Simulated scan of single mutants.
Amino acid sequence: MAGILGIGLIFVMVFGGYLLAGGQLPIILHSLPHEMMIIGGAAVGSFVIANDFATIRHTIKDLAKVFKGPHWKTSDYRDLLCLLSELIRLAKQNQIDLEAHIEAPSQSSIFQRYPRILADKEAINLMCDTLRSASMNYDDPRQVEEILEKRMDANLHRAMHSSHALQTMADGLPALGIVAAVLGVIKTMGSIDQPPQVLGKLIGGALVGTFLGVFLAYGLVGPFAARVKAAVEEDDHFYQLIREVLVANLHKHPTNICIEVGRQATPGPMRASFTDLEEAIRESRKAAA
């Protein structure tokens, strides 16, 4: 919703101010299709050259974050802590029973109660791999912690590809606008024998290219890249929380301490109160029984 509001505000303020100042919109509208073809087509072509198909698909998918925001919501953080509480408690009671759940999470009665988390392969793999490591009786839990940190850094770096690709496109758009403007000037010079009224429109059309390149870069594509980056960084807190809780478990802390570590590690706006989380955990135990 905020993304749509922001886009609307940009267009209203820019073009509304232009019209109030006495600008003539038909000149822009007449040149817009051709200039957009040059600038937009070149930008998309450069984007395809600079990125592989996996990054292109990832970027198109991540554009939804501009309007929807981060994937993980407040309820997901609470559900995650309830899920981890059940898994850690089971691991301390009966490691063999736990193995049945972490080896086939899609068939696990525990995981199935949290479908949004179960649908995220990275979150599930992170939990299952770490719990499996704990069952191997690592002498030094810091070794597992270091592996997790490297793994999550690599995942975050990969998740940032789309925002980097969009930012690269935004950086190139002003220059592509100049390319379109130069082509417009060349077209104008070919009509140098025309009267001033005709030349004025041709020059105005050429300048639309410069305007469009800068407008798209700083008004749309650049902010899109920043929003995608912010959403990816917010979602990364979800995986960081998994790491914090499971590392606390590797250090042999009681279950309630591990979960409290996770609650404290939850970003402020998403953090459940101690009482609410205790109630949610009790409800999850009742559901399991």
Score class of each variant (00 low, 15 high):
residue 5 L to D: 07
residue 268 G to C: 04
residue 242 I to S: 09
residue 187 K to L: 12
residue 94 N to A: 08
residue 30 H to C: 02
residue 43 A to H: 07
residue 233 E to N: 08
residue 154 A to M: 13
residue 49 I to W: 07
residue 236 D to N: 15
residue 102 I to P: 06
residue 212 L to M: 09
residue 153 D to N: 12
residue 282 R to G: 00
residue 237 H to F: 15
residue 114 Y to S: 11
residue 273 S to E: 14
residue 254 P to L: 12
residue 237 H to I: 09
residue 88 I to H: 03
residue 254 P to M: 06
residue 110 I to P: 00
residue 40 G to L: 12
residue 229 K to P: 04
residue 279 E to Y: 11
residue 198 V to W: 14
residue 7 I to T: 12
residue 288 A to I: 00
residue 283 E to R: 14
residue 50 A to P: 01
residue 221 V to M: 06
residue 180 A to G: 05
residue 157 H to P: 03
residue 136 M to N: 09
residue 75 S to F: 00
residue 272 A to H: 01
residue 69 G to K: 00
residue 264 Q to R: 08
residue 96 I to S: 11
residue 282 R to S: 02
residue 272 A to E: 03
residue 78 R to G: 01
residue 253 H to Y: 13
residue 178 I to E: 01
residue 281 I to T: 14
residue 256 N to C: 06
residue 12 V to G: 02
residue 182 V to F: 07
residue 100 A to M: 12
residue 171 D to H: 08
residue 122 E to C: 01
residue 190 G to Q: 05
residue 272 A to L: 01
residue 23 G to V: 01
residue 222 G to E: 05
residue 3 G to M: 09
residue 4 I to N: 02
residue 55 T to C: 09
residue 185 V to C: 03
residue 132 R to P: 03
residue 17 G to T: 06
residue 3 G to T: 08
residue 150 K to S: 10
residue 199 L to Q: 15
residue 35 E to N: 07
residue 163 S to T: 00
residue 252 K to Q: 15
residue 3 G to Y: 10
residue 98 L to V: 08
residue 109 S to F: 10
residue 204 G to T: 00
